[in-house]
Nucleic acid binder design. Sequence first.
DNA 1: TCCTGGCTTTGATATGTGTCAATATAGAGA
DNA 2: TCTCTATATTGACACATATCAAAGCCAGGA
Lengths: 113, 113
Amino acid sequence: MEPLELLECSPPLMRQPLDAEQAAGVARVFKALGDPVRLRILSIVASRAGGEVCVCDITGAFELSQPTISHHLKVLKEVGLLTSQRRASWVYYRLVPETLGELSALLDVPVTV
Amino acid sequence: MEPLELLECSPPLMRQPLDAEQAAGVARVFKALGDPVRLRILSIVASRAGGEVCVCDITGAFELSQPTISHHLKVLKEVGLLTSQRRASWVYYRLVPETLGELSALLDVPVTV
DNA sequence: TCCTGGCTTTGATATGTGTCAATATAGAGA
DNA sequence: TCTCTATATTGACACATATCAAAGCCAGGA
């Protein structure tokens, strides 16, 4: 599964209707965000000072099995929201702010139409 | 199902980890966005000049049954992304820009950490 | 080389969801 | 009242997914 090709130059939703292909790409990422556990994982990584969290830090924050957390991390990684890096015995996860930024821009609709 | 209580004053993801309740509320909306058909419906409504679309306009844009479109509209309405209004025989849907704005703010993470 | 700890993958299962056909409802007009 | 058109709801089904237990993999240390 490829690391995701979002919209080249994120046109906000208002510009013009998304075609099927664009919608499919964006929907993958939103679907990944559509789970409470994954949202919390993402916010844990995002709010961590160093920008980096090891899996054990995340596992400790939930009452879920470690394989379940691993599964969610994989989903977030596959859609390009996180990256991972192994150092010694530990695996560290980081945000991909560009992906979040594109989604944010996509949803950035002026309140006063 | 209530029309959604998003975060009172949307703290971006970076500020601090979301608690379980916050995450559940936000995840509902992202889950609604996590379907290609719903994303396209939303972009059709958003990009329409008058800001208003009747169901027949949407149905015509897809090769899906009318009940399926109706189902997706209901989902988008339940999470507070759309509102509807009946006039004569037709039902018109509109964006709720505030909801989109909150999500956008939530994902608005600075690219340079 | 063998253990041990950290993480991932696999397999199984229960629950959720996107879709359609059929049916229901609501309003307009005859 | 009856009919017709536009939309919503219901029921059923195939497929996706969140979760766990068990097994596998990888790196360090003894």
